[in-house]
Simulated assay, not measured.
Amino acid sequence: MQKIIDTHIHVWNFDKAAYSWLDGNTSILNRTYNIEEIATERKTVGITEGILVQAANNLEDTNWMLQVAENNDWIKGVVGWLPLTDTVATQNILEKKYGEEKYFKGVRHLIHDEQDAEWLLQPAVLDSLKLLAEKNIPYDVVGVLSQHIETALEVAQKIPGLKMVFDHLNQPPIKSKEKFGVWGELMKTASQHKNFYAKISGLGTASGDGENWGAEDIKPYISFMLENFGINRCFCGGDWPVALLAGSYSNTWNIYTTVINDLVNESDSSKIFYSNAQRFYNL
């Protein structure tokens, strides 16, 4: 059986951490989501391993994810949060708190919620990102604007040793069906940097079509990324529970596996589903 790492799973617990982006949210997302809720479904679709990804810019969220990882043997890593605007604090936390933590595998900040699209270019943040590069800790870029890609490109120039991945492919223009516009040009540029990776995730919600999206809607964008980034720098994530806004966990994964298995052979798909993520996150 083919092994699959879901590189993008969220858990949030209102008793453990504050999730400011959910304040006043009236969708199905505004409640606690525990990992046990996908226990059966993830086996049904063949997910063998998983990575938890931060959902709040605070250490409480990261600590909760690390606790969940410790208690669920199929979870192999956590993409946590660090106070990147405070380089000294970031260094102290890495050295004294998370340095020896076996599940701490990456860092992310909710940059798409920041007013400044160039948030990553602050001097202190860049200094913190240099620390990550020195320790071979990758960074997840969660962007939604073309400026977020442009900013990431500047970071890559300033810190060429930092491994970065574009979460949700930085919102390709699936909704407008544009092929591929400014997004495509910027992604082509990004693909020239060997330390940029692409996370095939969040495409159901990016389609803007509720539960009515399917393989043909996202196939051109996945094909484009595979063509530009290559077979060795792409991997997949389910984005549960956010992806529930566009249908079930099973449906999301069934569509991804259908598209990828249609585009590449079994040897290449095993890289996209498993070994690329294993290498990127140092699992």
Rank of each mutant, 00 (worst) to 15 (best):
Y139G: 03
K135H: 10
E134R: 14
K135P: 03
L132F: 11
L120C: 07
E118I: 15
N136D: 04
D113C: 12
P138Q: 04
L129G: 03
I111L: 13
K130C: 10
H112M: 08
D113G: 12
K135N: 01
A124P: 02
K130N: 11
L120D: 11
W119H: 12
L126F: 02
I111Y: 08
Q115I: 14
L126Q: 07
D127T: 09
L120T: 11
Y139F: 11
Q115S: 14
D127N: 14
V125P: 07
E114H: 09
Q122C: 11
E114D: 12
D116F: 07
L126I: 10
D116H: 11
D140K: 00
K135V: 07
N136F: 11
K135D: 01
A117Y: 13
D113I: 15
L132R: 01
K135I: 10
Q115V: 15
P138D: 03
K135E: 04
D116Y: 12
D140W: 00
A124R: 08
I111H: 10
D116A: 06
Q115T: 14
P123E: 09
W119T: 11
P123H: 05
K130D: 10
E114W: 00
L132D: 00
L120S: 08
L131S: 02
E118C: 13
P123W: 07
V125H: 05
P138E: 03
W119I: 15
A124F: 12
A117W: 09
